[in-house]
């Protein structure tokens, strides 16, 4: 049992990371008061731009290490720009945020494949190499913890974990974080206190876009290696993790790891004797059913930002 756990743990972490960064971005958006259901589309854009930039540059520069980092940056920037569509609709035009987010998902899904087909013909874009897993020096020799957390890890994993810590610090320990959260809880009070609610919400949505773009690019550069026009619905899963994690950074960490671990277990169950006795369908639907149950349990004490999803109307009291 222990060896299996040791074996699947790195995979679970790899699967968790894109979800974590995307859900973390959505935290900024929702804390500022804007529901972002367009995460899936933003991840697709990140994956597409990442694949496009990296494949072009790898053709030019070969496997230089910095190419992937340029790809990550480009993906984050592109998705942040793309998220402006959602920000504009939901902040300036008071559009229904769920419909606007759905439009984002649809545009991203259709447009990226359309462009990819124009580029490659097949609609898929391959990159020649992604990030390579490595063993953390020294730390990987620690018994138990070393095997679970520090072997076969990706550099992006650590990048995302650092972003998690930075985000938690920003949200709870800086004036900016306090203001951002105020805009999601009580925008009129925030405005009365001199905070520019709309600007804060723009920032929230754009951070969400950038992080979701990173998430999409991380999928590409760690385990998929190819842009295929979708991210297997992970954006929706990230949204569920945000709620499951009760709009808190470390709650999100736990929720996304739960999804990552459960999905990995379901994926490898057939080759592990102890798990092969359970019908795979049970393992596959397990995370979704647990989420539904968790939503019911949390329904009495939801920590959702009070004003999330409501268009801000300065004149309304």
């Amino acid at each position: 049992m222990w060896t299996t756990l040791e074996q699947i743990f790195p995979y679970a972490i790899v699967f968790t990371i894109p979800l974590l960064i995307t859900a973390l971005g959505a935290l900024f958006s929702e804390r500022s008061g804007v529901v972002n259901i367009g995460l899936d589309g933003l991840m697709i854009v990140g994956s597409f731009i990442g694949a496009f930039v990296v494949s072009k540059m790898q053709a030019q520069f070969g496997g230089s290490w910095w190419v992937l980092w340029v790809g990550l940056l480009a993906a984050a920037a592109a998705s942040a720009l793309f998220s402006l569509l959602h920000a504009f609709a939901s902040i300036n035009l008071s559009a229904n945020q769920i419909i606007s987010g759905t439009a984002i998902n649809m545009i991203a899904g259709a447009l990226t494949i359309f462009l990819a087909r124009n580029i490659t013909g097949s609609g898929n874009i391959r990159i020649t190499s992604g990030f390579r897993p490595f063993d953390f020096p020294i730390l990987s020799d620690i018994p138990i913890i070393g095997d679970l957390f520090f072997t076969n890890t990706y550099i992006t994993t650590w990048l995302v974990l650092i972003l998690l810590l930075v985000s938690a610090f920003i949200l709870y320990k800086t004036p900016f974080g306090l203001r951002l959260r105020a805009c999601g809880e009580h925008p009129h009070a925030a405005e009365a206190a001199g905070i520019r609610v709309r600007a804060m919400r723009y920032v929230g949505v754009m951070i969400s876009g950038a992080f979701a773009g990173l998430g999409g690019a991380v999928i590409l550069m760690t385990y998929s290696g190819e842009f295929t026009g979708n991210v297997a619905g992970l954006g929706f899963l990230a949204l569920a993790s945000l709620i499951f994690g009760q709009w808190k950074p470390f709650g999100i960490l736990a929720a996304t790891f739960f999804f990552g671990f459960a999905s990995t277990v379901a994926n490898v169950s057939q080759v592990i004797p102890q798990l092969a006795v359970i019908p795979p369908v049970i393992l596959k639907i397990f995370p979704y059913v647990v989420t539904l149950i968790a939503l019911v349990i949390f329904s009495k004490s939801s920590n959702a930002p009070k004003a999330v999803g409501e268009p801000f109307d300065s004149g309304k009291r």
Binding site: A89, M106, G109, A110, L111, I113, F114, G123
Partner: peptide, 14 residues
């Protein structure tokens, strides 16, 4: 590419 149809629909929705 046939995805132009999906793109048009998505843009209409926006």
């Amino acid at each position: 590419p046939p995805e132009i149809a999906d793109s048009i629909i998505a843009i209409i929705i926006y």
